[in-house]
């Protein structure tokens, strides 16, 4: 039996009718049209569907849609303020940290979650933070560089 789920996505109240078998990923992509969250494995192994729930990164494919009731969710569509990019996004562009782009939304959210908790991460911490996000194009190098640059940028911004 389908039920209505109410939640807050990217700061906006949303509601949708979901099947008990539906995942949060299906809710976001198919019901709410937020297709920036990608499906790569449906198993929690690739991280393409990473979104934040109460600030914590989760794989949307492992969360039941019903569990989103009352939750605060951030998807890739909610990271930039309009076309005002988050420093992580700007740095990924600048440093060549996105190629095919399919893993990028998930990487962005993992990085945003990291920097919220650890503003000055080491490269080891950055690699750990994105270890649940598989990228097959970049070899990770430029992603790590970009996240480090974003952290520096945010630190500089915070000092001003």
């Amino acid at each position: 039996m389908k039920t209505v789920v109410q939640c807050e996505v990217n700061g906006e109240p949303r509601e949708a009718l979901v099947d008990p078998r539906d995942t949060l990923l299906q809710l976001l992509r198919d019901r709410l049209g937020l297709t920036g969250t990608k499906e790569g494995c449906s198993n929690g192994n690739c991280g393409s569907c990473t979104v934040l729930m109460a600030g914590a990164p989760v794989c949307a494919c492992l969360v039941l849609a019903g569990e989103a009731e009352g939750a605060h969710i951030t998807t890739i569509e909610g990271v930039a303020d309009g076309n005002d990019l988050h420093p992580v996004q700007a740095a990924l562009i600048q440093h060549g940290g996105t190629q095919c782009g399919f893993c990028t939304p998930g990487i962005v959210l993992s990085a945003v979650a990291l920097l919220a908790e650890t503003p000055q991460p080491t490269s080891g911490q950055i690699r750990h933070a994105i270890a649940g996000n598989i990228c097959r194009c970049t070899g990770y190098d430029k992603i790590v560089t970009a996240i480090a640059a974003a952290a520096a940028e945010m630190q500089a911004g915070a000092r001003q």
Binding site: T35, G36, I76, V88, I93, Q94, G96, G101, F102, P105
Partner: peptide
């Protein structure tokens, strides 16, 4: 030159459309 990808903006914002996204 080391220029950024011209299509990177839509990638980092999740706006790039792959077939599974097409409605």
């Amino acid at each position: 030159q080391r220029l950024p990808r011209v299509d990177a903006g839509e990638r980092v914002t999740g706006r790039a459309i792959y077939p599974a996204d097409l409605v």
